[in-house]
Amino acid sequence: MPLLDIRNLTLELDTEEGVVKVLEKVSLTINSGEIHGLVGESGSGRTLLAKAILGVLGSQWRIIADRMMWDGKNLLEMTSKQRRNLMGSDIAMIFQDPVGSLDPVRTIGSQITEALTPNKTVPFWRRAKDTELNAQKWLHKVGIKNPKRLMKRYPWELTDGECQKVMIAMAVSNHPKLLIADEPTNSMEVSTQAQIFRLLTQLNQLQNVSILLVSHELETLVSWCDNLTVLYSGQIMESGNTTTIIEQPYHPYTYALLKNLPEHTGKMRHKALLPTLQGSSASLHHLPAGCRLGPRCPEAQRKCVQQPKLRHVKDRYYACHFPLNNEPDDDNAIT
């Protein structure tokens, strides 16, 4: 049984100009112990999908889904209190904006110790000190050189990179079953990025923590993820095993992303232009009919004004009427 199973999720936003479908019929499955990558351009809905899983969207958002299961339990039927109990214990998230996610009038130490679950095997008169030492240990693991001094400081005294490390320490300290990492190494130097990814890999391999890694950097996700889901303008383009997708992409958008990766072999001419898709992502208020990639897709035809169904071929999922490297088959459509 999958740890997280989402089928045909649609996320609607009430605006002054009417209802906007920010996410449309998105399906996502994450198994226990899996590192799953979610890649897409800015504005593709990656962060909104992560927040919908966590249940931290505002009242103006409306979630419609055929299925949204967490470890065998229906997330859509849970009360707000039950969803809050999942946050920080079973499901944790590293937010993209660490500075805005921390309370500016409280010290780092008070915020991270509040997030930690006290060790009940320790006598109650020693739990406060034990929790403080545990907080220092996790801050040291994410690359803070002097955690004791940093715990006395406020978020506005730290750099963006230090705030990001604090958020990562708070998220991983309680050993969640699923860790949603939204651009976890943003504003960090290369050496620290490698350290953070090693820490996430250790959590995955030693403690069987599932990770949903959200990023726009396809090259990074290819290196770390078992499976990959490609999102464009609120629609799933393709999903499956990372190696298989890289070797043989079915969707034109996935192919375009792979062609856009810079080559480090020296074959590319100096300052040569990378191949790109013409045009830009559609505005949420003026979304194209059918496949949202249609106006930019080099393979688009008249049939693309109808939204393609998500199709399943040998553990691969794709939504395209005219897939690359694969013949279209009407019998494998998922309704």
Rank of each mutant, 00 (worst) to 15 (best):
M268D: 14
G240L: 02
P275D: 01
N325E: 02
R62I: 12
L274I: 10
D315C: 06
D315G: 07
I94M: 10
T335G: 15
I91P: 00
P98E: 01
V209M: 14
M69L: 13
N146R: 12
K152G: 11
I35G: 04
K141W: 07
E219L: 13
V20Q: 10
A300G: 06
G161N: 01
D331S: 14
I53V: 13
S59N: 13
I211G: 00
E189P: 07
Q82I: 02
L139T: 06
N325A: 02
K51P: 08
V20L: 15
H270T: 11
R311E: 04
N31A: 08
S80V: 15
Q193T: 05
T79Y: 01
Q248I: 11
K137T: 13
C304K: 03
I91T: 06
L102F: 04
M93S: 02
M167W: 10
K314W: 08
A92T: 07
L3W: 00
P184G: 05
Q306K: 14
K51E: 12
A128F: 10
L228I: 03
L23I: 06
I91E: 01
I196T: 04
Q164Y: 03
L200Y: 06
G33S: 00
Q278N: 13
M78T: 03
G18T: 02
S233D: 09
N227W: 09
R311N: 09
R198H: 13
W61I: 06
F124E: 14
H270V: 14
L258P: 02
E183C: 08
L179H: 02
T121W: 15
P98Y: 01
T201R: 15
M78K: 11
L206W: 10
P308K: 08
R153M: 11
N241R: 08
K25A: 07
L48R: 09
I63R: 11
C225G: 00
P262V: 00
P262Q: 04
Q111H: 06
V39D: 01
L139E: 05
S44D: 00
H36L: 11
G43V: 00
L231Q: 01
R84Q: 14
L228N: 00
I108R: 05
A50N: 02
L178G: 03
M78D: 08
D71C: 11
L9A: 07
P323I: 05
Q307A: 15
S27G: 07
S283H: 12
M188K: 01
E189Q: 12
E12L: 14
V99N: 13
L277M: 12
R292D: 01
Y154I: 09
M1W: 02
D130A: 11
Q205D: 09
R126E: 12
N74K: 07
N174M: 09
S44V: 04
R296K: 03
S281H: 03
V166L: 04
V20K: 14
M268T: 10
T201Q: 15
K271D: 08
I144Q: 07
A50P: 11
T29P: 07
Q307G: 00
L199N: 00
S215F: 06
G279A: 05
G143W: 05
Q96P: 03
R302T: 13
L86G: 08
L54G: 10
D330M: 10
R46I: 08
G294S: 13
I94N: 06
T201H: 12
W138F: 04
P123M: 08
